[in-house]
Design a binder for these strands. Structure first.
Length: 907
RNA sequence: GGGGAUUUAGCUCAGUUGGCUAGAGCGUACGAUUCACAUUCGUAAGGUCACAGGUUCGAGCCCUGUAAUCCCCACCA
């Protein structure tokens, strides 16, 4: 292939991914289906000790959608973990998924249906299900292609769709167990109901928004009561406050607070419900707040959550007056069939006409909306399937408090426990056809009184079944998507009760912090319930990706960044490096194209580093070819290539070489700690600075003088492998391009520690200090382009004497000479070296001010150090090594100042 | 009402167990230029670490309080 002048990701990425797939490198090394050949009941791999595994499941993206920026972040994080652990030698399994996304997809489909002039009510459930199935099948594949473009090294043959047979099987098995354990019940309760989509939601799916509304005061006249006439002052009516006058037809009572003196003698009396002939009682209940409105509140148990509870306490009838399509039912003829909002207008008009509307007030209150279409949700009385969460939540809390799951960020554990403590029963019925059918059948045979009303049966493809001569019909509802998702780690890892499974629990669950409750909480409850074990050992939560200004991305704001655009423009690696930069667990963080540009630049830098090294390797090979006879040459080559696969067959000869080994070791160690602690941004940063600031700027520059071919190879390999989890494509392209590497980098081995001479490494650090000081001083001198103007003079300095070539090359000074005891020019501000730039006196004089500044600055540092030492407590209590360090620094600064002052006097 | 965060350079963010003379990227200014890379190289400027107390030899970090910004849950006739 060869190295072109710059790295063009578009030319290589898809080929590289295809090569990985063809070589089947994403597949875990250890089989993923439990093995029990000797029928001992345990997995045979346990006995052989092969359980060095690492598993992650991908939060399944919507099967018929496109990936958004959050998916981009998810893949960058999860794939980095998987690739890192693969390089560490673990049998790593990244399990991809696709979500049928029940409600989301249904909304899209229903919209299409409406566009074509149809409604869902023209078809039965089975028909609709197969229609949506086909609709999704047409769209599928997009997101899978996009995951490939992002470089996700997931095991494609294990892709799980949330409606796959094994998923449904597991869901039914779990549901059956829960049904038998009494954790599932059918209840008539108020549920949040969207009249547009005609389905109920779980509490968690409801979006509350603060809105302006009106609070009306309506007079309810006391029903005829003989005692009323006895005193003239006694009231003849009670005024209630309400935001929903149209529901008054469903009122079952008027409640007042037991402590409220105003109404004390009205309790127990009856009032006439306006616009009807009905009468209802006045009751006392804590729910009525004397401070709010008139202090009297109408109770409508069928259409308000609080009123439902009041109704339960007082055994009030629940009369439904709004039907599932949002129109009025069970109301006087004239209102029947109106929509709720039309009815409200009529009711208000009629109340006014009768003089019963006593006041209105503008208020702000929060209103529940459908999170998809924005329609105001109607609390609706419905029979639904509920999960009794009390026991599940209690057990989950125990496991959490037992520290069985580690959270990143750590505070999310407390947040989750807090959530579990207040969790209410979970409505898992949805009235949409697109989903997993609830496997329950209702008895229709009235005569079979001994049989239960509902039975569990897996044959949901049948509309009705017969058991022991009794007929049952299928419940037409489907499961809440989160009910099936809650078992995702179980189904994806092929967990079974019989066999040990080395991939369950997952090592880590990585997902968005926004679905901590909806998903993480439910996976924990259900995972423990089904398997007895927590479903994952660690949880890493990422925050939202915000736009460059820190604003939430939204279509309406037009600030949505499409990850695929950035991948096309800068390459997958650049995107991945860019999106990880500056990001930490659980935080919503801004993201801009700039950081992707920085990532792209790093890829190009690495490319050119490799290009340089390859050219050095080629030159060396050519040289040895010229200097040896044909026969021995071949032998040598064989030898060399064999050695290179063993790697680290190098010897350090020059200081820069020891130094870079030290720095790379340090970097690798840092990356290892960062990965353990999920500090992705830190890992990227240390790699960035090691590759760029250290390897390229210092080591490679020094290698232009001394070419250590074997070391160049070894160190480049180490850096490529270390960066691979974050920039998989460019590192693999380079790996394939280099003449001496073999196989794929994706399956390479994490580099081992490099050997070096620490004294020599430290000497190179001194050289760097000297060179930096030369550069700084040259820049500060008057005039431009000073680099090649002034020579360097040294006195009695073996480090400089021995490394003249290196210093010259790095600092660009034209000459280096011993000044032989006669100092001249400008002294460099280095305490341990007597070095001068051979600058003419007039230039030195112009530099005087800069020198003065320098002396003052060092003086201030010295003062701070001295102040520390004058404090006896510091000397007593601070650790000895710090005190010594301070002493040394004082000595150094004092020496430096006195020398600079001497210099100043010379001028 | 309950819970959780955030506040550090112009911008976006690091700062892990208190040792800091507070860092990075981008941006800005100045300089360089054939020989891997202008997607480059070198140098610099830029900070009252939100505020007020406290603990400590030592606080960006720990404690108490205040302010501002944000998120989640519950409630709102």
């Amino acid at each position: 292939m060869g190295f072109s002048k710059s790295y063009e990701p578009g030319e290589y990425e898809s080929d590289i991914y295809a090569a990985w797939e063809a070589a089947d490198v994403f597949k875990p090394k250890i089989p993923t289906i439990p093995v029990d050949d000797d029928e001992s009941g345990t997995d045979d791999r346990m006995e052989s000790g092969e359980y060095n595994t690492y598993s992650i499941v991908m939060p399944p993206p919507n099967a018929n959608g496109n990936l958004h920026i959050g998916h981009g972040l998810t893949v960058a994080l999860e794939d980095a973990l998987i690739r890192y652990n693969r390089l560490m030698g673990k049998s790593s399994w990244y399990i991809p998924g696709a979500d049928h996304a029940g409600f989301e997809t249904w909304v899209v489909y229903e919209r299409n249906l409406e566009k074509q002039g149809h409604t869902r009510f023209e078809f039965d459930r089975d028909e609709l299900y197969s229609r949506v199935w086909n609709f999704v099948a047409e769209q599928r594949g997009n997101m899978e292609l996009q995951l490939r473009a992002l470089g996700a090294s997931c095991s494609w043959q294990d892709l799980t769709f949330t409606l796959d047979e094994n998923v449904v099987d597991q869901v039914y098995t779990t549901f059956e167990k829960m049904w038998q354990d009494g954790l599932i019940y059918r209840g008539e309760k108020l549920v949040n109901y969207c009249p547009k989509h005609q389905t109920a939601f779980a509490d968690i799916e409801v979006e509350h928004k603060d809105e302006k509304g009106t609070l009306w005061d309506i007079e309810y006249k006391l029903a005829d009561d003989p005692s009323r006439e006895s005193t003239i002052s006694s009231p003849t009516s009670i005024i209630v406050s309400t935001t929903r006058p149209e529901t008054l037809f469903g009122d079952a009572a008027v409640a007042v607070n037991p402590e409220d003196k105003r109404y004390k003698n009205l309790i127990g009396k009856r009032v006439k419900l306006p616009l009807t002939d009905k009468t209802i009682p006045i009751i006392k209940d804590e729910h009525a707040d004397p401070e709010y409105g008139t202090g009297a509140v109408k109770i409508t148990p069928a259409h308000d959550f609080d009123d439902f509870q009041v109704g339960e306490r007082h055994n009030l009838p629940r009369l439904q007056v709004i039907a599932e399509d949002g129109t009025m039912v069970n109301v006087p003829e004239k209102y029947n069939g109106l929509t709720a909002s039309e009815c409200r207008k009529e009711v208000l008009k009629d109340l006014k006409r009768q003089g019963l509307l006593k006041g209105e007030k503008k208020i702000e209150h929060s209103v529940a909306h459908c999170y998809k279409c924005g329609t105001v949700l109607e609390p609706m009385l419905k029979e639904q399937w509920f999960v009794d969460v009390e026991r599940l939540a209690k057990v989950a809390i125990e496991h959490l408090e037992n520290d069985e799951i580690k959270f990143f960020p750590a505070n999310k554990k407390a947040v989750l426990i807090n959530y579990f403590k207040g969790l209410k029963d979970w409505n898992i019925s949805r009235q949409i056809p697109w989903g997993i059918a609830i496997p329950m059948f209702r008895k229709v045979d009235e005569r079979a009184t001994d049989e239960p009303d509902w039975i569990f049966d897996r044959r949901t493809h049948l509309k009705e079944i017969e058991k022991a001569g009794v007929k049952y019909v299928r419940d037409e509802d489907t499961f809440d998507t989160w009910f099936s998702s809650s078992q995702w780690p179980i189904v994806c890892t092929n967990w079974t009760p019989e066999n040990y499974n080395p991939y369950y629990p997952l090592n880590v669950m990585e997902t968005g912090a926004d679905i901590l409750f909806a998903w993480i909480a439910r996976m924990i409850m259900m995972g423990i319930y089904v398997t007895g074990e927590v479903p994952f050992r660690e949880v890493y939560l990422h925050g939202l990706v915000l736009d460059g200004q820190g604003k939430k991305m939204s279509k309406s704001k037009g600030n949505v960044i499409n990850p695929m655009d950035l991948v096309t423009k800068y390459g997958s690696d650049a995107f991945r490096l860019g999106i990880l930069r500056g990001r930490s667990a659980g935080m919503n963080q801004a993201f801009s194209e700039n950081s992707v540009v920085a990532g792209r630049n790093l890829c190009n830098k690495l490319w050119n580093i490799s290009r340089l090294i390859q050219s050095i390797v080629d030159d060396a090979a050519e040289e040895s070819e010229n200097s040896t006879s044909g026969i021995t040459r071949d032998n040598e080559r064989d030898e060399a290539s064999r050695e290179s696969t063993i790697s680290s067959q190098y010897e350090t000869l020059n200081m820069g070489e020891d130094w870079i080994c030290r720095e790379i070791n340090e970097c690798l160690k840092q990356v290892e700690t960062d990965m353990k602690a999920y500090r992705f941004a830190d890992a990227v940063e240390i790699l960035y600075s090691t590759i760029w600031d250290k390897y390229a700027d210092w080591f490679l520059e020094s290698q232009k003088l001394f070419k250590n071919v074997e070391l160049l190879k070894t160190t480049l390999e180490a850096l490529l492998i270390a960066l691979h989890p974050f920039a998989p494509f460019v590192t693999e392209v380079i790996w394939q391009n280099l003449s001496w590497t073999e196989g794929f980098i994706i399956t390479a081995k994490w580099p081992s520690e490099l050997e070096y001479d620490p004294i020599s490494a430290e000497e190179f650090e001194n050289i760097r200090t000297i060179v930096s000081e030369i550069r700084t001083t040259l820049q500060a001198l008057p005039g431009t382009n000073n680099a090649n103007k002034y020579g360097l003079l040294y006195d009695n300095d073996s480090l400089v004497n021995d490394n003249q070539l290196l210093i010259k090359a790095l600092s660009k000074v034209p000459t280096i000479n011993s000044l032989a005891g006669a100092p001249r020019g400008l002294r460099l501000a280095l305490a341990n070296h007597e070095l001068y730039l051979d600058v003419p006196e007039n230039v030195v004089k112009e530099y005087r001010d800069a020198l003065e500044d320098r002396i003052l600055a060092i003086g201030r540092e010295l003062d701070a150090l001295n102040a520390r030492m004058f404090n006896p407590n510091y000397v007593d209590k601070a650790p000895a090594h710090l005190v010594k360090e301070t002493r040394d620094q004082i000595k150094e600064k004092e020496a430096l100042i006195s020398r600079l002052k001497a210099q100043q006097e010379l001028i």
